[in-house]
Design a protein around this nucleic acid. Structure first.
Lengths: 198, 198, 198, 198
DNA sequence: CATGAATGAGGGTTCATTCAT
DNA sequence: GATGAATGAACCCTCATTCAT
């Protein structure tokens, strides 16, 4: 996933702000909101912790901002597959790679963190409700349906299939991010088998 | 009145200890060790926070005890499938259900938390190393191999297949645990397709 | 110093109470009031900590009671030298030995603790004020004066001399009690030299 | 405005650190490590308790730092007498005065506390072992021996004499520190008599 | 009487947040 | 803007004290 598109970037006028957000994303996505200390973010960004508060009112606000951005980014990633050439399955493979890739992963990890952690700000809960799994499912519905028609994609309720696909995909990132040695990313083939079916 | 006799005291201790562990499992498994406050566990158990320390020396010890128990329980769950009748696939389906079930889930969630959280006690890290994914993979190897011979299970490196299967399974719990409404557990069929292959 | 005379004993009707006080004296005298936990006293007495509260309302009360008893005991020890035969210097040597002896030491140590610790109960402060050094000095004044007349004891203000003698004596117990190896009790001869003078 | 430059910050840090150490010395020396609460030190220093932890990692570290400094200071005090003019006895008198003086007393009291308290950090125990009474005795040995040759100092084992002298001296501080009115410091003359002998 | 389970005030420590410089 | 000193709420844990049995 490309880091951010122009529309998202325009709301980051400040280079410093971007620098902070990048650092915060890195730390939050790995450690979650509770496990992250503001000092960690400051250290990662190479600035003093005091400066964080010139750009973000609070830890919660910073986290919330990032989640919001990640949500938009994720949606964009979904949409972007429609700009591609190729068969539906090609598009899904592309998306899979995109999500699991080094670049896009932090955003999806952050979303995962937001979803699976208690103690996130109220605003984040609202965002999660708003950008529910359903909204992503809806985004992918056309391509999956098309794939089912061509026979590339397994038959059955496509919404359920997408839901399963996304759940598994996002879950995998977390495992992969933590402990490269113990867990291996299931080979794409195995993952795709869920989708393509027998 | 004469003080309680040993047996009675023992019983109280055991009951309380179990009560605390149950409460702690519930909270730890959802919120992780950092996100869990001793007061939460106390509240969940319906006792004062001070009493926790009559039964467990520290938060770390409590967490470690639970992880240890969960590890053993998980291993037992793996082993138990060999007592079942039925085809290899039946056994795997049973295990899947077992892990995702309301009952066993907290234990697997706790293991997940232990694996993916920063700030866990050293002892827990050792436990994780000891009961690595590999040990679980080894446990399931026979049944998967058998399934591959009968053709029920997809061909390919069985260790990789099991690893993928377990990774996905355990991470799904986390998503599922939080938010029953938004996420639905992928239907077993779809999940099984990872394993069965075309 | 004999542990306790009859008069003091009569107020300990209960064997248990005596047992507790003995244990408490042992611990308090070494560790002071802040460094002593009720559980330590209970363990030393071989009873449960709950039982302490059947005999003493609080830690403070227990400490205060002991200080009171020690004060009386100390005064008795002073008085007792007048029952002895021998020269003034003999009497003082006897008192010195008595105070530094295994038996009487805890009482004097407790007084020392009470005197040198902050955070003792108000009542103890009153006791210290009441049984000030002056009261002990007064007690010994006759024998020191007599010694000065016979030339056994150094000349000079006898009150000052006694004050110095007692201060040094009580201080020494503490050092001796802690760390047998590092500190050695100054030989009586050296100590006596303070008193006898050139 | 530009942030403080390095030198300014360094100065603030140093000043604060000194301010805290001064306050801590005052409280620790009187109340010992167990009887001292971090809030007392903070109050004495006129700062918030949180700030203490910007300058010292823990209560133990603060205590240890002070003990270390006190040990060095004590050794320096011992050594300094060799820079003085005068007879051996003059030097010892000077040292006596130095130790009992308002200024140096807290350091010696702290050492006393470290020596006689339970619950001091392991590092402090090592320091005590390292700077044992013996090391101080060794330091004073030359001047005492010289005094014995000139006849100013009493004959006998000089190590024993010094040990007695130091023990008494250090324990006197404790009594004296608390209660200026009740106890008077034994006049130097009387104290010196221990050393000079008949 | 005797026990130890149970409580909760309070102390050590961390860390989000504020603010003087 | 930028820094890091400073604050204080909140967390883990201890221990004096209470109380059911």
């Amino acid at each position: 996933m490309a880091p951010l598109n122009d529309e998202q970037l325009h709301q980051i006028r400040d280079e410093r702000k971007e620098q902070i957000m990048e650092a915060a994303l890195k730390v939050f996505s790995r450690r979650g909101i509770v496990g992250t200390k503001m000092s960690m973010i400051a250290a990662e960004a190479g600035i003093s912790h005091g400066l964080l508060y010139h750009y973000f009112k609070s830890k919660d606000e910073l986290f919330t901002t990032l989640v919001q951005m990640a949500m938009l980014g994720a949606q964009d990633a979904m949409k972007s597959i429609y700009d591609l050439q190729g068969s539906p399955l090609d598009k899904i493979k592309y998306l899979t790679k995109e999500i699991l890739d080094e670049g896009g992963r932090p955003y999806f990890m952050l979303i995962y963190q937001a979803r699976t952690s208690e103690g996130v700000p109220e605003k984040v809960k609202e965002l999660i409700a708003q950008y529910s799994l359903k909204s992503f499912v809806d985004e992918l519905l056309p391509v999956f349906k098309e794939g089912q028609q061509t026979g590339e994609i397994a038959a059955g309720d496509p919404a359920e299939l997408i839901s399963a696909y996304l759940s598994v995909l996002s879950s995998l990132m977390m495992l992969n991010a933590q402990d490269e040695e113990t867990y291996r990313l299931p080979s794409s083939d195995i993952l795709m088998r869920m989708v393509t079916g027998p």
